[in-house]
Design a protein around this nucleic acid. Structure first.
Lengths: 197, 197
DNA sequence: CCTACCGATCGGTAGG
DNA sequence: CCTACCGATCGGTAGG
């Protein structure tokens, strides 16, 4: 009567603890011994649950990529104005970011420690995601619902504001993820100018 | 007849090459042997010019901090409307970022590999810089020249958009640093809404 | 999941 | 600026 469940949960535990360490210290500066100690076991024991250090990073990065795609998909599938869809997409992005800030930070900053071909695959995914956002902004410009000299530039700036969130967001702060999502969408769409709306 | 000049230039060369490597691979994942090879010498030889690996990181991080402060100082010392000062400060920030993108990326992402007390000192400097920006935004809100529910939140978002720049900026792109600075300032202040101006 | 260990590589130093 | 080397630590494995 072997039970596979504890193994799976141990693996999830490893991923979770590793993600926190990768975020705080970076992938390269986090040792497997450190990770093992944080989990209360010896370094060698990790390898009955995982194949390598990079495997953890791979799972975190590609798992989050999937979440971002799912969020965007859902946000833009509902019939709405382009502006409304953009707003939904921004809020979906923020929800994924705030659901697990540590994983998000790793997704955003540690992916370059993936070795090939995973690294290129990851970059292709990220580019595809940005392209979806860009296309949405472009449709907004074409429809006259948005104004900007350049969809690519506008999209980059927009995603930049969102992606800085894991740097300062604290789950116990006074703003809920939805508050943050709404404010970000407001500020990005209306700007800081009092004429903005 | 010893000449001290080559030594100083060698040190600058080391800093420059190290900065590029730190940016591309991260501080922890960059070895001194790699750095030495990139400079055409042996690992041990580096230590006649520098004291440690961290010393390089320290110089880059604190050097850039100084540039940001100088830029802000200059931008806000000229008499102008609050909105004008904010615009100048944004443009100054972008100019520092684009002057050396590699150093900027290291400043933004690798500072956490500083050991104490340098790490805390660095964070204090960064906080002080953000506080200056925040105060400027707050004055804009008070004067009715800007509109936002919260100066802190608005400032964070604003700096986020700017600080993502080293991720995508290429010096050989079609937009000059000043073009980028102007567009960023426009988009951040006026938003993406067609009513924005 | 542990003990014991592997080869490789790390930042840095001594002595020239 | 090089050669030769230090002690420490790395990711990972074998065998139980």
């Amino acid at each position: 009567m072997t039970s596979p469940a504890p193994t799976r949960s141990r693996k999830a535990q490893i991923d979770h603890t590793a993600t926190a360490l990768f975020r705080a210290q970076g992938f390269a500066a986090t040792s497997m011994r450190e990770l093992a100690t944080a989990l209360g076991l010896e370094a060698g024991s990790l390898y009955s649950h995982i194949k390598s250090k990079e495997e953890i990073l791979h799972r975190v990065c590609f798992g989050l990529a999937q979440e971002f795609f799912a969020g965007f998909e859902q946000a833009t599938s509902q019939a709405a104005s382009i502006g409304g869809q953009l707003r939904q997409a921004i809020e979906a992005h923020v929800r994924v970011l705030t659901r697990d800030v540590a994983a998000s930070a790793v997704f955003l900053h540690e992916w370059r420690h993936l070795s090939e071909p995973a690294r290129s695959e990851f970059l292709a995914l990220r580019e595809r995601y940005e392209a979806q956002f860009r296309a949405l902004v472009q449709r907004g410009l074409d429809a006259g619902e948005l104004a900007a000299p350049d969809a690519a530039f506008a999209t980059l700036t927009l995603l930049a504001s969102l992606n800085w969130l894991p740097t300062w967001y604290r789950p116990d702060g006074k703003l809920s993820p939805d508050d943050i999502a709404h404010r970000l969408a407001d500020q990005l769409i209306n700007g800081l100018s009092p004429m903005g709306e």
